[in-house]
Design a protein around this nucleic acid. Structure first.
Lengths: 184, 184
DNA sequence: CGTTAAGTCGAGGGTGACCTCAACTTTTGT
DNA sequence: ACAAAAGTTGAGGTCACCCTCGACTTAACG
């Protein structure tokens, strides 16, 4: 079912872009819960227009985060390229949380129940896939505590989300302490 | 300035107790943000009566948490009585977060900006005092990483608050991993 | 140009939380 | 028993957010 609807009218395309830009900024600054009215205001567009283009909050998420989540793949590939299994895993964590720290919206996406946007879900699954390989390698090399699993990483991610929110200058230290506890 | 106001009328005292009971339950179940209307409803009292007795949310907190926070002193004393410095510190953490896990309201109190209730603030300071001694002892014994400080414990507490909320059955595991990273 | 489909606008209705206050009810003290 | 003081009540005002819809505006195309 190809949705080959007529292209947007010029003014509509412009407004859509302004909305997307505003939402991108505000999600990053304030998180996913920012009031939609704020987005409309920053885009200099009426609330009605916002709803025309993006009927639900998830429509914004679905339009914004797939490309943002591409960064997940980048750091995943980077980590897979690293030979030392511990360095690969630890570096991945560092990079992952650096991303979260930069973008409050990403922090929310990775923490809360996923929005029902297939592309977002897919990107997260790919990310989890990378993590699983990295954990597997580190386990095989005997450098990671033997009972570590992807579920622990999910827990850590939520914990880090909180730490990043509360004390953006402390998360690296917190992570490094935790990571010490991880070595075999 | 002694506020020797006349004692409460019988019905008023009864309502005050019902409100306190309801608030205690709901804070523990749902956290500090529970709507005041819910408290009134559970107490079977009108919203106006609630505001008569407790004009602000902090008035509830101030009436409820000092005794709840006495538990902090108990686990603090218990830890100070333990001879092995590592065991004392690690046991304290375990006990502290067990308290948090039992009571969503306590979790909130320990995590968020403190309510401006002097008794609550005082209890938290006493708790921090205990922790400071325990950290000092462990450092002196060389069993705790040399740069650990009370600020790290504050960070950990916020992280644990999140972990407890998201995965109440995982926090012990998470804590034990972190604690591994703490040993000297 | 003029028609018209597409798009924009914002007032306004809905919800849930906060808080107040004037009218009513109950306790208390004499 | 009664008056005054104390307490209770809930309707309703405020606010912030959600979302809709009918009247207006404008780009697109012949």
């Amino acid at each position: 079912m190809v949705t080959a609807s007529r292209p947007l009218r010029a003014d509509a395309a412009r407004n859509r872009d302004k909305l997307l830009a505003a939402a991108t900024e505000l999600f990053a600054e304030r998180g996913l819960d920012v009031p939609l009215e704020h987005i409309a205001r920053r885009a200099e567009v009426s609330i009605g227009t916002l709803y025309k283009h993006f009927p639900t909050r998830d429509d914004f998420v679905a339009s914004i985060f797939p490309q943002r989540l591409a960064a997940l793949d980048v750091i995943g590939e980077k980590a897979l390229a690293e030979q030392d299994p511990w360095q690969a895993f630890a570096g991945y964590l560092e990079d992952l949380y650096a991303l979260q720290a930069e973008d409050r919206g990403l922090n929310d996406v990775l923490t809360r129940a996923l929005p029902d946007a297939p592309q977002v879900v897919a990107a997260c699954h790919r990310g989890a896939g990378h993590a699983e390989v990295l954990i597997g390698r580190a386990l095989a090399a005997g450098v990671l505590r033997a009972d570590y699993s992807i579920a622990d990483l999910a827990t850590l991610t939520r914990a880090m989300a909180q730490v990043i929110r509360d004390s953006p200058d402390q998360w690296r230290r917190f992570l490094s302490i935790y990571a010490e506890g991880l070595r075999a």
